[in-house]
Nucleic acid binder design. Structure first.
Lengths: 217, 217
DNA sequence: AGTAGATATATCGGAGCGATATATACGACC
DNA sequence: GGTCGTATATATCGCTCCGATATATCTACT
């Protein structure tokens, strides 16, 4: 899954490995920090797969392998952005996808956000069930762990609800049939339309569909 | 670090691999789910290291390797519980430690809680700094990711503050000089003293010599 | 008798990680 | 002028973990 953010960065401009390692740290907002032991093998895999191509450059006596994404790579990127991904790294994978959400059409964004939401609801239910049954004889620290996990999960769901609400608002505002915004992003700089997703909302969640449960905290 | 929860469970009672895989899922409150590809190699490492010993049992025609912790294993457990651990898995490692906090003295608990707190404060500062500098030209989703990360981290810190306060209250209530370990934890750890005398008495002769690899069969 | 599912151990290939090796470039300090 | 520390840059080693899969046996139901 490291392939996803690598290709995502190479979509913006060709880069060499070291530069990628720096920018990859930023792209998820400071979590994540890649290791060279992951990055360089990953680049080789992508190269063998035909998703990237390397041009050797030389600045002074210093060698650089400048990678650029191919059309095959673009296809791989689209696939990774929307599908698959191992469940064990679900949280990380979701963050990676979100970091490149600007390349998705609003409907796809909503689909992924709701898939993630369903996953978290399931996790929340698991925790609740466990808390309900194992409560009497459990260790107090484990109990605290579970309660905290419940709160965090509920908070994550509320956050997703905000994101979903913002996307829906944007779709209906732009016109439900238009939806072209994914194709022509100039660079990583924001699209003005999607800009207020994070800041607004918090008041009018509870959209149209069957939402209840959570919010307990 | 999988060794920590394995030894922690074996401290309570001897178990075979499959049983461990079940209980390991519980021990962290439903997060974590171990894989056999982690568990069995991990058990072999522990065995080679002398931290656990296996007794082959047979129920009907079915073979079981029942593992029991050694005194060396107890020492390894204490070390793992208090020190080291890779930074990349910091979150998971902390959860594992917390799940076995009952084996620590209150002062050690407070020390670990505050170490964790310092780590999270640093993470929070990093996020804040990043938000302050990269704010104007960043992608809105990345921004949202960082803001949410900031909130979650702040929540974690508040949770830790509660845990620390609870520990301190308990220390001063019991008497600052008393500090007898687990101090009235009703939890799952009871009745271990009797069992431990039996098992330690049994293994004292084996410690220094003839560690003959493994008990293959 | 047949089969579905739980119990039980084990290994394979692959991916990520921390550490480390090997260079070059460049400013700072003495 | 030398050299020390830091940043740039690529690459690999050993290890752990993971998902998937193989191989059995036992139980329960059909």
């Amino acid at each position: 899954m490291l392939e996803l953010p690598i290709l995502g960065l190479l979509k913006e401009q060709p880069m060499h490995g070291y530069q990628l390692s720096k920018e990859l740290t930023d792209v998820l907002g400071g979590f994540w920090r890649v290791s060279y032991g992951s990055l360089y093998p990953s680049l080789k895999r992508l190269q063998k797969q035909g998703a990237v191509e390397a041009d050797e450059a030389r600045v002074g006596g210093r060698r650089k392998n400048v990678y650029r994404i191919t059309s095959e790579g673009e296809r791989v990127f689209d696939t990774l952005l929307q599908e698959g991904g191992r469940e064990s790294a679900e949280d990380t994978t979701f963050r990676m996808r979100l970091a490149f959400f600007r390349y998705l059409k609003p409907e796809s964004r909503i689909r992924l956000l709701e898939r993630r939401r369903a996953f978290l609801i399931e996790r929340l239910d698991t925790i609740k069930a466990r808390l309900a049954t194992a409560s009497p004889n459990a260790d107090s620290y484990t109990l605290s762990l579970m309660t905290h996990g419940q709160n965090v999960t509920a908070g994550d769901i509320a956050w997703l609800d905000d994101l979903i609400a913002a996307e829906r608002r944007q779709v209906t505002a732009t016109g439900p049939a238009a939806a072209t915004s994914a194709t022509a992003k100039p660079s990583r700089a924001r699209s003005r339309t999607a800009r207020r997703t994070a800041s607004t909302a918090r008041k009018n969640r509870r959209t149209t569909t069957t939402r209840r449960k959570e919010r307990t905290t």
